[in-house]
Design a protein around this nucleic acid. Structure first.
Lengths: 193, 193
DNA sequence: GCGGCAATATACCGAACGGTATATAGTCGT
DNA sequence: ACGACTATATACCGTTCGGTATATTGCCGC
């Protein structure tokens, strides 16, 4: 059964994706959900609380799926390419399964430091970054010349992955399996290879 | 002499950087600038016009500097590494010289498709992307195995560069010359090298 | 010294904002 | 059948939103 709460969240993620959290009014979310304001405030307490609930559900889930994909060595000892492919695959799969959330996530990646958005999104952004950085730190144990560069690797890996997701969401790109394999290959061995 | 118009723009970029375009009110910008609303509307016509003027000045300038750095072959025939270093250097230098604008630029990189921000920022974002893609297309003429991949290269290069800029602006990173050289080296030859 | 224009201010507009005091309907345990 | 609790609605709050009609100032050309 679809609860009122779920319906509000679904309407909200769609509205936030297309017009942005700040530009969407609570009144409008209520009308689109077929409810009234006190109902929304009963469930979420505030507009910021609504965003927090949305992120807890979807960003939390996304981070979990990425963490599973990025586990290293996990059962893939030495297979960094396989881990990175699974990781970027998690980004792309999320964009296919939940494009609205992925749009909200991307638009929150560089949100202003004194915004409500930032306060809510920051822990999830840091968790994602930490997960990827940890993968590269583990890999450095097996590939000595990677040592001490995990932060730089994580930043560029997430940056490139999000750029691909952004192009896909804009309809400019279809990142199929071959595309992702090439992306990982370039990342590990350079653009000439 | 600092004109009223310039002062408004300076106040606006600072406010947009820290709290976001949508969350900043026109009234507040006027008070911070020491003027009143009709003066702002005399110069810019609307809030969106103010953002457009800001982007015309700063995003236009930034894109020009990137285009200069990314010119290929230019006088650097065959020196793709040098061109990419100059290009990522332009990103980082911009962040140092005009951190507020760079914050606004980053926060507009993935802004919602039905927002005012998107309408204003889109041409500049596309111009930037086109510039970088053109560089990789030119490089492919000399490095045959790069052919047909310019879009993918451009996306990942801009994505990684913006990720570095974002970390710098958050105070988590100091991208000095050595860092940037490593970044370009990884990009061209892979993370193991 | 006066017409015209660029640049500013006072005072106001209707609409939308996020949020709430209060009442009411259903459900569930006792 | 009644108290307590969950979930909802009506009607309203003060504030702020982007934007404007109108008046005023100062300068420049003639």
């Amino acid at each position: 059964m679809e609860t009122t709460r779920d319906r509000i969240l679904e309407v909200a993620v769609g509205a936030f994706a297309s017009r942005g959290y700040e530009a969407v009014g609570v009144q409008e979310l209520c009308e689109s959900s077929g409810i009234t304001k006190p109902t929304l405030y009963y469930h979420f307490g505030s507009k910021e609380g609504l965003l927090a609930a949305l992120f807890a559900e979807r960003f939390g889930g996304f981070n979990g799926r990425v963490a599973t994909a990025a586990a290293y060595p996990g059962n893939r000892r030495g297979d960094l390419a396989g881990v990175l492919l699974a990781t970027i695959g998690a980004f792309v799969e999320e964009a296919r399964d939940d494009p609205d959330f992925s749009r909200v996530r991307l638009s929150s990646a560089f949100c202003p430091p004194s915004s409500e958005r930032y306060r809510v999104a920051r822990p999830y952004l840091e968790a994602l970054y930490g997960t990827i950085a940890a993968t590269f730190e583990s890999a450095a144990l097996e590939h000595g010349n990677m040592a001490g560069r995990a932060a730089q690797y994580a930043a560029s890996f997430i940056g490139a992955s999000d750029a691909y997701v952004g192009l896909y969401l804009a309809g400019d790109l279809d990142p199929d399996e071959a595309f992702l394999r090439r992306a990982v290959h370039y990342y590990m061995h350079g653009i000439f290879s």
